[in-house]
């Protein structure tokens, strides 16, 4: 239980720090880089390696590469929904999560389900 409390606090702090960095930097396209910062990974990988060893962290990082490709596809899709379909940000980003899941698991299966 305490492990998840630590995860929550560390994750919240790292994500907030990157989000605030994104807030103060201009222009917006540069600040957007921080929307895809590895904030959850920074909070998770250290705990994972500490608990399960370096091999476990390597497997997670291997899958994270696939997740990052899915994130690029997701971001392009969100961009198109906002610019062409004129959707608002909240529905556009939430409905596009389906695209992330499809891309992430599609690529993960294509890679043999194990990186």
């Amino acid at each position: 239980m305490s492990e998840y409390v630590i995860r929550f606090l560390v994750g919240g702090a790292v994500v907030s720090a990157f989000a605030m960095l994104g807030d103060v930097l201009k222009p917006k396209s540069f600040a957007g880089l921080f929307g895809a910062a590895p904030s959850v990974a920074l909070a998770t990988l250290g705990i994972a390696v500490y608990q399960h060893g370096a091999g476990y962290g390597a497997v997670q990082a291997g899958s994270m590469m696939i997740g990052a490709i899915a994130l690029a596809i997701y971001s392009v899709f969100v961009c198109q929904l906002l610019v062409r379909a004129r959707m608002r940000a909240l529905p556009a980003t939430i409905t596009s999560i389906v695209v992330w899941f499809a891309a992430a698991f599609g690529l993960w299966f294509a890679a043999g389900g194990q990186v």
């Binding site: 222009p27 917006k28 396209s29 540069f30 600040a31 957007g32 880089l33 921080f34 929307g35 895809a36 910062a37 590895p38 990974a41 994270m64 590469m65 990052a68 490709i69 994130l71 690029a72 971001s75 392009v76 969100v78 961009c79 906002l82 610019v83 004129r86 959707m87 608002r88 940000a89 556009a92």
Partner: peptide, 19 residues
């Protein structure tokens, strides 16, 4: 919407750096 789209465009580049 356009400001959020610019943020998404930045996130496309950011996902490359996450990779």
């Amino acid at each position: 919407q356009m400001a959020a789209a610019l943020d998404a465009a930045g996130a496309v580049l950011g996902s490359g750096s996450m990779f």
